[in-house]
Design a protein around this nucleic acid. Structure first.
Length: 342
DNA sequence: GACGCGTGGAT
DNA sequence: TATCCAAGCGT
């Protein structure tokens, strides 16, 4: 039995029961693929469900404004995904007469849809024989076929794509793609793969050569940038003002208290922010591409120019009210100030 | 092709 | 605690 048939037999018994698995609605599959881009199932699942509930079809999404969409995305990360979804939904309504694309070539024209998502939607929804190569597929194929080229290099990606194109089922391309993903997610995992329970234990190149802990090879890391964020809280009418973060930076379009960014950890912040009652909390938060050092302050009195004119402040009616208690600390600890807007 | 983009779980 | 990294894509 060939690779594809064996894989599909395994999938028929072991496929995961996920909310979008029994759907061939391209809108639903599209949303799912975007939500779970670089994101674990456990982390994205509640967001996917809430998003589909709030925006059940492409028309509903297109009718939303950016704040509404971002609100459903808050806490998930990679916020340009949400903005691209909205942009593309409007594109579908305005340019495609409200009808979702019906092919790989049409799908990939959507902003935020690349080769992987286009192939996934096309194979699952339209039965197109196109291999969807993501991190899972890279790993499974690199190990099974013994690809020793770095999978994130151009050469390595072409090799993997070629192997996937050869292996894909002509009859069940969508199931094939999802089966490889389930295999990579549950059996052929990045660390300590479950080789003894793998159907390919006797034919996997990496297993035969004891290289399953080494493959797939990857090239270098991205560098991390340090930044220092000093948040200054001033309680006004039992609420705190938030601003919308500007374009071209982290947390774009989300809300935050008054921010003073410094070059390093600076004690002069007390010179900038006069009449500070106390430093509420000091912490650092590590992102994958930036290391943010966050410090929180509480300002009292009128000497601190809280309502600056350098950015858009939110109206008083939208303020979340809370007393100056430890709850603020917990609010910041959990970064929930991003979710103040209900 | 290189770089930027977010969060939370695992080790 | 520090590091890695998980269903990619846009610029």
């Amino acid at each position: 039995m060939n690779f594809s048939s064996k894989l599909l037999n395994w999938y028929d018994v072991n496929k995961r029961d996920l909310p979008w698995r029994n759907s061939d609605n391209p809108y639903v599959i599209w949303i799912a693929e975007v939500v779970f881009q670089q994101t674990r199932i456990s982390q994205g699942l509640p967001y996917f469900n809430a998003f589909i509930k709030k925006f059940p079809d492409v028309g509903a999404l297109a009718d939303a404004n950016e704040d509404e969409v971002l609100k459903k995305w808050q806490g998930l990360g990679y916020y340009s995904r949400a903005r691209n979804l909205l942009f593309s939904a409007k594109y579908v309504m305005n340019e495609l007469g409200g009808k979702m694309p019906a092919s790989y070539q049409e799908m990939i024209k959507l902003k935020g849809v690349g080769p992987y998502i286009a192939a996934e939607v096309a194979s699952v929804c339209f039965g197109e024989v196109v291999a969807a190569v993501d991190g899972n597929v890279q790993r499974v194929l690199a190990r099974y076929f013994g690809v020793e080229e770095a999978v994130n290099s151009t050469k390595g990606m072409k090799i993997i794509q070629g192997l996937a194109n050869e292996a894909i089922s002509q009859f069940r391309p969508g199931d094939f793609n999802q089966a490889l993903m389930d295999m990579g997610s549950g059996v052929c995992t990045p660390k300590s793969p479950d080789c003894l329970n793998c159907i390919f234990v006797n034919s996997c190149w990496a297993k035969q050569h004891d290289k399953q802990g080494v493959l797939p090879l990857k090239e270098k890391k991205v560098k991390v940038r340090n930044r220092y964020f000093n948040y200054v809280l001033k309680i006004v009418n039992n609420g705190v003002y938030l601003r919308k973060r500007p374009a071209g930076d982290v947390w774009q379009g989300l809300f935050e208290p008054r921010l003073i960014e410094t070059i390093g950890v600076r004690s002069e912040i007390t010179d900038l922010v006069v009449d500070v009652s106390y430093e509420l909390y000091s912490a650092k938060r590590v992102l994958s591409h930036q290391r943010l050092f966050l410090r929180f302050w509480v300002a009292t009195g009128d000497t601190f120019d809280y309502v600056g004119n350098d950015y858009e402040w939110v109206g008083v009616k939208d303020l979340k009210k809370f007393p100056v208690t430890k709850s603020i600390e917990q609010l910041f600890l959990s970064m929930e100030f991003k979710s103040l807007f209900k």
